[in-house]
């Protein structure tokens, strides 16, 4: 399986890279399916709050496919998708979510706080909007140290109403920092539909309109199509790398699972409830329409019609992804818990 991203063909995305992209999308989906299934198959193993990236695959992969080797990705707590693409071990990711010693963060962080700096993934915040500032700080490092890196900053539609968003984008624009802000508009923040809380959405405008406040480029793309996301992000990355400053890209897609597992007090077990569109608003048709535009199905169809992906090749990729994630689950289940006294480690550097 092509885990490492094939070299960037400057002109167009070649067959090899398209298949790599498709494979990464599948790996994200399968990872999230296995996390979700854990709540049913191994109740109690995943604690706290877990947020899945199903539905976001095209947006994540399309964006990250544009990066150079040393560019960083800095998202929010809904963080499983990115490190998968960056080459982080899915075994270690699963073990972290299971609270085990062999986890990425040795059981200290859990689902919301994955970190893998060795793979260009410095870490996340569970507090809305705060990581937008952190990513902007990483862009400052890149600028001061002249590393040539571009920072990919991912956050939700909801997060764009946090002060840190406005303060960070303003500074990034003034300082012309090498960063691309990718606003993942999945149209919900927990139970709240975007038009109930966003001034642009309430007025029927795209959220990329916010870029105008900072006099930077702002575009809206179909986040269910990795190639459209790729094109928009590539343009923004070029601009950032050329020292011209940040851009805001609104990538529109739909989250397929509920915001997170139901919030309960132990020992009451938790699972993923129905999506809020259905549970809160009774919008079954909206949900069904979004599922019908599943980015993975759409991309597979496109690759097949272009003759890039054959049926046997698709089957082979699926099988190997499934096997890889089965191994990740087994690895995580077999990994021991950290010993309690470890808890006082890592308070200070």
């Amino acid at each position: 399986m092509p885990k490492k991203m094939p070299k960037n063909n400057k002109k167009a995305l070649g067959k090899e890279r398209l298949i790599w992209m498709y494979t990464q999308m599948l790996r994200i989906r399968e990872f999230e399916e296995r996390v979700k299934r854990t709540f049913v198959e191994h109740p109690g193993v995943i604690r706290g709050h877990t947020h899945l990236a199903d539905g976001a695959e095209a947006s994540i992969v399309g964006a990250l496919a544009t990066r150079n080797e040393n560019d960083l990705a800095m998202p929010s707590y809904r963080c499983h998708g990115y490190p998968i693409v960056l080459g982080t071990s899915v075994k270690k990711m699963m073990a972290e979510i299971y609270g085990r010693k062999d986890g990425l963060c040795q059981g200290f962080g859990g689902s919301m706080h994955l970190a893998d700096p060795a793979h260009h993934f410095p870490g996340t915040s569970g507090i809305i909007g705060q990581a937008i500032a952190h990513a902007t700080g990483a862009a400052l490092t890149a600028q001061v140290k002249k590393t040539g890196q571009v920072i990919y900053c991912f956050f939700g539609d909801g997060a764009s109403k946090q002060g840190a968003f406005y303060e960070s984008l303003n500074m990034a624009a003034v300082w012309k920092l090498p960063i691309v802000y990718i606003l993942e508009n999945n149209q919900y923040q927990v139970y709240t539909r975007v038009e109930l809380e966003d001034a642009n959405a309430a007025a029927g405008d795209p959220l990329s309109r916010k870029a105008q406040a900072f006099s930077i480029p702002g575009v809206t793309v179909d986040g269910t199509d990795p190639l459209r996301v790729y094109d928009a992000v590539e343009k923004a990355v070029k601009r950032a790398r050329a020292g011209l400053g940040p851009s805001l890209i609104e990538s529109k897609f739909y989250r397929f699972s509920a915001h997170g597992n139901a919030i309960t007090v132990p020992p009451v077990p938790t699972q993923f409830p129905e999506h809020e569109a259905i549970e809160t608003y009774g919008r079954k048709a909206e949900y069904a329409a979004a599922r019908a535009r599943d980015p993975i199905l759409l991309f597979r169809k496109k690759l097949k019609s272009k003759g890039v992906l054959s049926e046997p090749a698709a089957k082979q990729i699926e099988d190997s992804v499934r096997a890889e994630l089965e191994q990740a689950v087994q690895f995580a289940l077999a990994s021991p818990f950290p010993s309690p006294e470890e808890a006082t480690k890592y308070v200070y550097a």
Partner: peptide
Amino acid sequence: ALDTSIPYSEPLEKYV
């Protein structure tokens, strides 16, 4: 509580 942040994993959290 011990002078730490709250860790994720159950045995760590209990210890703290």
